[in-house]
């Protein structure tokens, strides 16, 4: 589904600059849920941005469902993100001036869904993340856990092929984080979405189907005892 071949990323133009990573090879199958781990500065977020077409590669290729990505063609990758990717951020990033319903509807409106379909899908997502009674609330009226639930609903509302989550529980307490991770996993399963979750947390990584470690030497499987 997602195929990364000989991917190298170097910030700066000169070949002498030390690469963030070099000659990465990675394959993720459809419906697979993978945790991406690594030390701070290892390039996890950079890899996520490259997969999303937000950051150009130095060399190597990325294909999603057979479609090659080129971040230099901005319109094409923007459309690709809009239709096929979902994002969850550590800081939630809900629009403060939109209510819960409108925040979840954001990707649907971007993808020009009809109002009836938007209403039905958002209602469905609200129910599945357990926020059916909060549809008219503004983000400032929600707790951190509730905000991340809204973010999960927003990320999956348009049925993306690939979900990218960057430290989704980093701002949450352990109990809430666990609840959110369980919800995330169940929603990924329910929507049959392929997902990569960047995390430092072993607990979070354990919820994934598999975990990989990003080091200078490349991506290595991370095994838990």
């Amino acid at each position: 589904m997602l195929e990364i071949r000989t991917l190298t990323k170097r910030f700066g133009d000169t070949p002498s600059t030390a690469p963030v990573f070099e000659n990465l090879d990675f394959v993720l199958n459809t419906g697979e849920y993978c945790a991406l781990m690594g030390e701070s500065g290892a390039g996890k977020s950079t890899l996520l941005n490259i997969i999303a077409g937000l950051e150009p590669t130095t060399s190597g290729t990325i294909t999603l469902e057979g479609q090659a990505l080129d971040a230099n063609i901005d319109d094409a990758v923007t459309l690709f993100r809009r239709e096929k990717l979902g994002f969850i951020f550590q800081a939630f990033h809900l629009l403060p001036y939109l209510n819960v319903f409108e925040n979840i509807a954001l990707p649907l409106r971007l993808n020009r869904w009809t109002e009836e379909k938007i209403s039905a899908r958002v209602t469905e997502m609200l129910a599945s993340v357990g926020l059916g009674d909060k549809r008219a609330s503004l983000p400032r009226e929600l707790s951190g856990g509730e905000m991340q639930r809204v973010a999960i609903a927003r990320a999956l509302a348009h049925r993306p092929r690939l979900l990218l989550a960057d430290e989704p529980t980093g701002n949450l307490d352990p109990d809430t984080a666990l609840q959110v991770l369980e919800l995330l996993r169940s929603e990924i399963r329910r929507n049959n979405t392929t997902a990569i979750i960047v995390t430092h947390s072993e607990i979070a990584a354990r919820t994934a189907d598999r975990a990989v470690m990003l080091t200078r030497a490349g991506l290595k499987p991370r095994l838990f005892s």
Binding site: L54, T78, R81, F87, F89
Partner: peptide, 13 residues
């Protein structure tokens, strides 16, 4: 951050 999020969601420049 709002504009950054929108760019992630597929809003073009």
């Amino acid at each position: 951050r709002e504009f950054g999020m929108l760019r992630h969601l597929g809003v073009s420049r």
